[in-house]
């Protein structure tokens, strides 16, 4: 249960970090919070030849609101900071409300926003929030950068759009539309364990209370965080009722997610959880949307 040998650098600047990634490419692995990577190295499931430790990049630890109302978060910001920051609570309440579901406080004290997104575990919460809230992700490499939308970022199991020489450096969260409510819930065997199923919802209503738009995104039901656009479409344009929640839950849980059985739950049970949770988060999000519209 000890990591295999590796070479280690801890650059003091982003430029040096990107230069190290450019030089070592696929052999190098970025060490952010290490809360997923180090256990994998302890088990020797991961044996990188080189670790590029980004923990000296204090410039990448920030949370601020842009004049446009977007919330900008540095990739090395600790997850614990998200929980404690009033700007996150005000501008990104879904993110703020979901972070406490991520493992335990001891893990969130080290774990970073960028690390969790780049690790892209389909059982983890932050990728689900990223997809639900259309995060924009800044990917930098030596001498250039590009911005990628969350929907184009998560491409497979533990696989993202990141190239070996690129680093996720910043996350931009658009302002929450008015009259919009949010909710998240999940089920785990013990608090802090990997969830069996989880779901985030966003619901926007118009001035009459009808649903103007909705979003449902699930964790642990496929190789990436999975959206249920057809269920959301069912809700849109109509009043939000228990019947419409049930119809959306039926659509999402039977047609749009792709759960596999594991040691904790059968596929049927996961679909059952998804159905029950979908109704719960829609009800809660609709309530928050109505309260926001008052």
């Amino acid at each position: 249960m000890k990591p295999a040998p590796f070479d280690y650098v801890a650059p003091g600047s982003l430029e040096e970090t990107l230069a190290a990634l450019a030089e070592h490419g696929d052999d190098a692995k970025i060490l952010a919070g290490g809360q997923s990577l180090v256990p994998m190295m302890n088990f020797r499931l991961a044996q990188p030849a080189m670790l590029v430790d980004c923990n000296r990049l204090r410039d990448l630890e920030f949370i601020r609101v842009a004049p446009t109302g977007e919330l900008r978060i540095g990739a090395m910001t600790r997850q614990r900071q998200l929980e404690r920051d009033p700007l996150v609570a005000r501008h990104a309440p879904l993110l703020h409300g979901t972070v406490p579901y991520v493992a335990h406080p001891q893990i969130r004290n080290r774990g970073t926003v960028g690390g969790s997104l780049a690790h892209a575990d389909p059982a983890s919460e932050l990728p689900v929030v990223a997809l639900t809230r259309d995060f924009k992700l800044r990917l930098q490499r030596s001498g250039s950068e590009r911005w990628v939308a969350a929907k184009d970022f998560f491409v497979g199991l533990l696989e993202t759009a990141l190239e070996p020489e690129e680093m996720l450096t910043e996350i931009v969260i658009p302002p929450l539309p008015s009259r919009t409510g949010w909710a998240f819930t999940e089920s785990a065997r013990r608090h802090g364990d990997y969830a069996q199923v989880g779901v985030a919802a966003l619901v926007t209503i118009d001035s009459h209370g009808d649903c103007q738009g909705a979003k449902l995104v699930y964790l642990s039901v496929g190789e990436t965080p999975m959206a249920a656009p057809r269920a959301a479409e069912l809700l849109t344009g109509s009043p939000l009722t228990e019947e419409s929640f049930a119809a959306a839950a039926e659509m999402a849980s039977t047609q749009e997610i792709d759960p596999s059985a594991d040691i904790h739950a059968t596929e049927d049970y996961k679909r059952h959880l998804a159905r029950v949770f979908t109704v719960r988060v829609l009800r809660e999000a609709a309530g928050r949307a109505a309260a926001a519209g008052e």
């Binding site: 290490g34 430790d53 004290n109 080290r110």
Partner: peptide
């Protein structure tokens, strides 16, 4: 040694962290 049990918790700049998940 993979961050689940909490027995190795130490304070890192005053905050509790898993010392088995820190180099």
């Amino acid at each position: 040694e993979h961050g689940v049990c909490g027995a190795c918790t130490v304070l890192f700049d005053g905050e509790p962290v898993r010392s088995c998940l820190t180099l």
